[in-house]
Design a protein around this nucleic acid. Structure first.
Lengths: 318, 318
DNA sequence: TTGTAAGCGTTATCAT
DNA sequence: ATGATAACGCTTACAA
């Protein structure tokens, strides 16, 4: 194993100079810096992260906390974790997954936290955290966060439906009292109002069989030339099935636009037009934001909203 | 931060005794051990993993290497990673995701590797690894591995189809030259032969639209009373769609059995009878096997096959 | 069985 | 601007 001392010898300087070249390059003269850098590459030096961690009282580990009870096959979360892992890896950090609330404070140490799926009751728990954290998902508590721009997403979808000349545009949302749901509804409502149309909103549990049953039960209410803006792809898949089951023509008489764009949209038949969240990228951004926060000793990072993209496919008119 | 010394003081012993209670409890007298343990809980002591790592020349980090180019939304892999992360977390290890071959040897250090998705060309690369590793997935190179028992899985499926009295039983496999595919075909073939039936195997690319098109193109070949044993849920979803598209009755005249049981099976309509791999559990087993291998300084661990489970649902007769 | 001392690789502090 | 020294928390090797 090549250590600081090895590099120091090779470059004829002290360990400290090498350390400084790595951590505070501005404090060392260009010539020495150059020498040291050459020595480092010559020896293929890689810092020992455990030693660094010990000296700095850090761990190089970030805990990813999922407070929601998730179906662990849910592709959405998996993509997110994948993105986080990639983002952390790039900067030499490793990830520890926490699904057990008890592991949050107890257990191994970490340099910071990425938290998602929190409900109101979790807020005190989160506020107890003594180390920097960032949140995935809109929140009203002033926590730093990253999310898709939900409002812009449904606005995109609604505008598209209008452009495709669907007469009636209905929103099928989720029956949860979450910030993201309100934002998605707002994007829809605002867009419709700009076009002097009356919003029509239903809220369902986030399951395809629920939305499928809903369509069948209310089939008489939906005349041809209707586009359904859905708050999730799960909902959209069920809506699509319900329409087909009742003999409706997709996309000519009925359009469907989903939300999420992770996996399910491609499995549907016809494939879904959907508001695609760049989930993996969001994960990488979370990692980057947290590491930056660490570098700035916990400074506020604010909120970052990433505009999602409308992917057009067979569930809406050409 | 509570350290060894703190615990030592509290228990009126030296640091070493505390260290021994943690790492070699048998070397310390029961009374002292008890005293120390009380002190540890009283102070809520947690070992500093960086210091441990430094002293032991370890990192407490395991690299998870995915050599295959995967669709990062693929729930199968995501579940696996989730399982690995949980398994590692339990023993205080963190995970680093490697998708870039260059990061395999270079970059940060790790104590061991969990490798998956390797092709023939990757074998030399893997053999160069200087640290313990385990593989996910059957392989013919003598590497320690964990996998589902693919052969047992398709045998389960085929026996079930026979029990449900489908006259004709067809296997739709994948057109890949991989160990797991051969095993799945073998389970099907063996079972049919035990019942004096002639195997009938097709091999397709692993996409639902490919298998859907295949069914339509060959619809005349498949008389009612046929059950399709599929090598993946993706294939099965397409087969199901193809059958429905051609007016076939599922499950009365045509049965479909998938393989994997991760997410897709539940999204299908009707939901798929499928051979469910305990993917997350496989991940945890991988973590456990690797950590045990580390504890045994790299000793061979052999292979572990986990028998999958047949989940019966609407795509086969009641 | 228990304790003492040295060292793992790095960085902060203080001196030059 | 650069270097010497101690310290981070733990474990191995050796001494008692």
């Amino acid at each position: 194993m090549v250590t600081l001392s090895d590099v120091a010898k090779q470059a004829n300087v002290s360990k400290m100079t090498v350390s400084r070249v790595i951590n505070h390059p501005e404090q060392v003269t260009p010539e020495l810096r150059c020498l040291v850098e050459e020595a480092m590459t010559a020896l293929n030096y890689h810092p020992n992260s455990a030693a660094k961690a010990l000296a700095n009282n850090r761990t190089n580990v970030i805990k990813v906390v999922i407070l929601e009870d998730i179906d662990t096959t849910e592709p959405y979360y998996m993509s997110l974790i994948f993105g986080i892992a990639k983002g952390l890896d790039k900067q030499g950090y490793a990830l520890q997954l926490v699904t057990d609330r008890a592991h949050l404070t107890g257990g191994n140490r970490a340099d910071g936290f990425i938290v998602t799926g929190e409900r109101a009751k979790d807020i005190p728990l989160i506020e107890q955290l003594t180390q920097p954290f960032v949140i995935f998902g809109e929140n009203r508590y002033g926590f730093d966060y990253i999310d898709s721009d939900n409002k812009a997403g449904t606005a995109l979808a609604t505008n598209y439906a209008l452009a495709k000349n669907y007469q009636s545009i209905v929103f099928i949302g989720l029956d949860v009292k979450e910030s993201f749901e309100y934002s998605r509804e707002a994007g829809y409502i605002n867009t419709l109002q700009q076009h002097q149309k009356i919003p029509q909103i239903y809220r369902l549990a986030n399951h395809s069989h629920v939305s499928q049953a809903f369509i069948t039960d209310n089939w008489h209410k939906f005349a041809p030339d209707t586009c359904f803006i859905c708050a999730s792809d799960r909902i959209a898949v069920g809506v699509e099935r319900g329409i087909l089951e009742n003999g409706g023509n997709v996309p000519r008489d009925f359009g469907i636009i989903g939300f999420d764009g992770v996996f399910l949209d491609q499995v549907a038949n016809p494939q879904l037009t959907t508001v695609k969240q760049p989930v993996q990228q969001l994960g990488e951004l979370l990692a980057r934001m947290l590491l930056q926060k660490l570098a700035q000793s916990g400074a506020q990072q604010g909120e970052v909203l990433v505009t999602p993209e409308l992917v057009t496919r067979g569930s809406t008119r050409d």
